[in-house]
């Protein structure tokens, strides 16, 4: 499970954050996930709920997921377009010389904790 590995990485990172900031209980964690990051938000939440029970710092914590739109740039005509709707081929000029500007993110945005 791809998502489980990601959950472990998020929790490991936040263990350090908690230590540095004297936090004892994390209540919620907000992740930003790009539309084409290959990570499925619902699976992440399922994995989170399972893993949180095993780590006191995260007990009863909630994972919140914010989706970031994916945008592709076309070198053929210079325009930007929505990646999910049109894929790799530019809807304006048909060029395949396109690259992803954003949408591949997987970031820990913020946490609330005591």
């Amino acid at each position: 499970m791809h998502e489980l590995g990601i959950v472990f990485h998020v929790m490991d990172t936040l263990d350090d954050v908690a230590k540095d900031n004297g936090l004892t209980q994390i209540q919620s964690v907000t992740l930003e996930i790009g539309e084409v990051s290959t990570v499925v938000g619902d699976y992440l939440i399922d994995c989170w709920q399972w893993a949180a029970k095993k780590r006191p710092l995260f007990e009863n914590s909630k994972l919140l997921v914010q989706t970031l739109e994916a945008v592709t740039h076309c070198d053929g005509c210079g325009k930007d377009y929505g990646t999910v709707a049109h894929g790799r081929i530019c809807p304006y000029c048909g060029s395949e010389k396109t690259w992803l500007i954003k949408g591949n993110e997987l970031n820990i945005k913020e946490i609330s904790a005591i």
């Binding site: 990172t13 900031n21 992740l31 970031n107 820990i108 945005k109 913020e110 946490i111 609330s112 904790a113």
Partner: peptide, 9 residues
């Protein structure tokens, strides 16, 4: 407390 993390996973 709300902490901004702003870090890639």
């Amino acid at each position: 407390k709300i902490l901004e993390i702003k870090q890639s996973v």
